[in-house]
Simulated assay, not measured.
Amino acid sequence: MTEPSPHTLNTAQAAAADWLARLDRPNVGEADWTDFDAWLNAAPEHQQAYDQLLALWSEMEAAAPHLDRALTQPSRSRPDASRRWLLAGGLAAAGLVAAVTPWGDITAPTTTYQTAKGERLSVALTDGSRIDLNAGTRLTVRLMGRERRVVMTEGQAIFDVAKDARRPFLIEAGDRTVRVLGTQFDVRYRDGRQSVTVARGRVEVRPSAGAAGQAYRLTVGQRLDHETGGAEARISTASPQAVFAWRTGQLVYRNEPLANVVADLNQYSDQPLKVADARTGRLPFSGVLAASNSHDMARTLTLIAPVTSTSTPEGLLLRAK
């Protein structure tokens, strides 16, 4: 009986290779991406196989110049054919069983984008993606050969991600990582609270390394809420148009915890707002506020929400009635 070769591709790896070739065609369409997304999310081993294939592809692209130089050397300095095939086989096997070091990513630059209080910023990335930053946001972007990675330390941003089958787009916010291949969604991370709202396509939100919890896949009109350090997350329906309204100067809320509303308003108003206690912070708030650097938002908030306000040296203190 013939033993299978250790380099033989399994079913998931073979399918991943087919998908990479299919999505690399110049005439790839939306139906291709929809089918690919369904395959990727059908089983954990599909994503693992695809990630391993991307790692191998990145390694091969990075090594290509070195191999070209080696193969064009005079024959007396070349390794013999058997050694070359042994090296190639070893690299291929390593790439298929583990994520190899992305040589080409070592020099990839990291760019920081930051907005001040009351400021918004739109950024066009070199991969064709776009990021709209809300006020009081700070994030870093690194576009590498194997992946595109954003780290959001504070704030809110809308991501319109260009499709790239070879480079997943990852956003780290607190202890959660959002993974996409091409879609549009909003990520908010303030005061240790995270939310992700999807407007187009699908995204995966999973615990970052060392964090507790499970992975969730969100589609259009879904929102995930999570507090850093906890294992649980809450999935609800949301209007992407309402969530995205801050780009046009409107803050739209539907049963939003007052603590989240206050954290947003503090990115626009010179007068700091604070909630007196956890009970006040949990109060649901619904309404539309004009995003402006003035006392008007705080005044409107106290008129709509069931709270009282007291001026203190630290700012305006809100307390549930």
Score class of each variant (00 low, 15 high):
residue 234 R to Q: 15
residue 206 R to Y: 02
residue 187 V to A: 10
residue 175 D to Q: 13
residue 73 Q to F: 00
residue 219 T to L: 01
residue 300 T to E: 13
residue 191 D to V: 08
residue 163 K to C: 00
residue 5 S to F: 13
residue 183 T to D: 07
residue 128 G to T: 05
residue 321 K to S: 15
residue 262 V to P: 00
residue 134 N to E: 14
residue 318 L to A: 04
residue 202 R to K: 15
residue 29 G to Y: 00
residue 38 A to Y: 05
residue 50 Y to D: 07
residue 313 P to Y: 11
residue 296 D to V: 09
residue 140 T to Q: 10
residue 175 D to F: 10
residue 138 R to D: 01
residue 125 L to E: 05
residue 315 G to V: 12
residue 12 A to F: 08
residue 141 V to H: 12
residue 76 R to Q: 14
residue 256 E to T: 09
residue 101 T to K: 10
residue 21 A to R: 09
residue 252 V to C: 03
residue 119 E to W: 03
residue 297 M to D: 06
residue 93 A to Y: 07
residue 115 T to N: 11
residue 293 N to L: 06
residue 39 W to V: 04
residue 103 W to F: 13
residue 203 V to G: 11
residue 143 L to D: 03
residue 105 D to H: 13
residue 53 L to F: 02
residue 82 S to T: 12
residue 186 D to R: 00
residue 46 H to F: 05
residue 282 R to V: 01
residue 42 A to G: 14
residue 43 A to G: 04
residue 49 A to H: 01
residue 185 F to D: 05
residue 256 E to Q: 06
residue 161 V to I: 08
residue 186 D to I: 01
residue 170 L to Q: 10
residue 38 A to S: 11
residue 206 R to N: 02
residue 190 R to T: 11
residue 71 L to G: 12
residue 244 F to M: 12
residue 125 L to Y: 13
residue 50 Y to L: 07
residue 264 D to M: 01
residue 103 W to R: 12
residue 7 H to R: 15
residue 263 A to L: 06
residue 143 L to A: 07
residue 62 A to W: 10
residue 119 E to C: 01
residue 178 V to R: 02
residue 100 V to I: 08
residue 79 P to F: 12
residue 9 L to I: 13
residue 228 T to K: 14
residue 197 T to D: 07
residue 41 N to R: 10
residue 52 Q to R: 15
residue 233 A to M: 02
residue 292 S to H: 14
residue 128 G to E: 05
residue 107 T to D: 13
residue 319 R to Y: 02
residue 101 T to V: 12
residue 187 V to G: 12
residue 307 V to D: 12
residue 198 V to N: 06
residue 95 G to L: 03
residue 267 Q to P: 00
residue 171 I to P: 05
residue 164 D to A: 07
residue 262 V to N: 02
residue 244 F to G: 09
residue 251 L to D: 04
residue 265 L to N: 09
residue 32 D to C: 09
residue 98 A to W: 09
residue 179 R to D: 06
residue 70 A to H: 00
residue 270 D to T: 11
residue 149 R to A: 09
residue 290 A to V: 15
residue 173 A to E: 05
residue 78 R to Y: 03
residue 46 H to L: 03
residue 126 T to R: 08
residue 233 A to Q: 05
residue 58 S to H: 14
residue 292 S to C: 14
residue 264 D to W: 04
residue 28 V to E: 14
residue 81 A to H: 03
residue 222 Q to G: 03
residue 277 D to F: 15
residue 226 H to A: 10
residue 273 L to A: 00
residue 257 P to H: 09
residue 181 L to Q: 10
residue 216 Y to Q: 13
residue 125 L to C: 11
residue 294 S to N: 04
residue 311 S to R: 13
residue 155 G to N: 05
residue 190 R to D: 12
residue 270 D to N: 15
residue 50 Y to E: 03
residue 114 Q to L: 04
residue 276 A to G: 11
residue 169 F to V: 00
residue 136 G to R: 01
residue 72 T to Q: 09
residue 210 G to E: 07
residue 192 G to K: 05
residue 61 E to H: 13
residue 32 D to Y: 07
residue 246 W to K: 11
residue 122 S to V: 14
residue 39 W to M: 04
residue 294 S to Y: 11
residue 60 M to T: 13
residue 49 A to C: 07
